[in-house]
Amino acid sequence: MGIAVNTVPEIQFEGVEMKYSTANAEVLALQQISMDIAQGEFVSLLGPSGCGKTTLLRLMADLIQPTAGEVKVAGKSAREARQAQKYGIVFQSPVLYEWRKVKSNITLPLELMGVKKNLREEKAARLLELVGLKGFEDKYPWQLSGGMQQRVAIARALAMEPEILLMDEPFSALDEFTRERLNEELLAIWSEVKNTVVFVTHSIPESIFLSDRVFVLSPHPGRLSAVVDIPLPRPRTPEMRGSAEFFELIARIRGSFEGV
Rank of each mutant, 00 (worst) to 15 (best):
S191K: 14
L174P: 09
I204E: 02
S203P: 02
E185S: 04
I204P: 00
E180C: 04
D175N: 13
F177W: 03
E192N: 14
S203M: 02
I189S: 05
E176A: 15
I204G: 01
S203Y: 03
E180I: 08
E206G: 06
H202G: 08
S203N: 09
H202T: 10
E184I: 10
I204C: 00
L182R: 09
T201R: 12
I189D: 09
N195H: 00
S191Q: 15
L174G: 10
S191P: 06
L187D: 06
N183R: 08
L187K: 07
R181E: 02
L174Y: 06
D175P: 14
A188H: 09
L174S: 07
E192Q: 14
S207N: 06
T201Y: 12
N195C: 03
K194M: 00
E206M: 06
K194N: 01
E192I: 07
R179Y: 02
F199E: 11
I208M: 00
L186C: 11
P205G: 00
N195M: 02
A188R: 15
D175V: 13
K194A: 00
H202N: 09
E184N: 05
V200H: 12
S191W: 05
E180G: 08
E192R: 15
V198F: 09
E176Q: 06
F177V: 08
L174H: 07
V200Y: 14
N195K: 02
V200C: 13
I189N: 11
I204W: 01
R179C: 05
S191I: 07
F199S: 12
A188V: 14
V197M: 15
E180L: 09
K194R: 02
E184W: 03
L174C: 05
V198K: 07
E184Y: 04
D175L: 10
E184F: 05
N183G: 13
N183Q: 15
S207M: 04
E176I: 02
S191C: 04
V197C: 12
E206P: 10
L174K: 10
R179T: 05
S203V: 03
S207D: 04
L186K: 11
L186I: 15
R179S: 04
I204S: 01
V193Y: 03
T201N: 07
V197E: 13
T201D: 09
N183D: 12
D175S: 06
S203A: 03
L182S: 08
V197T: 15
H202P: 08
R181L: 01
W190C: 13
D175Q: 11
V197K: 14
F199I: 15
N183F: 03
I189P: 05
L174M: 11
R179E: 03
E192K: 15
W190F: 10
P205V: 01
I189V: 15
I204A: 01
V197S: 13
F177N: 08
S203L: 05
R181I: 02
T196D: 01
V197W: 14
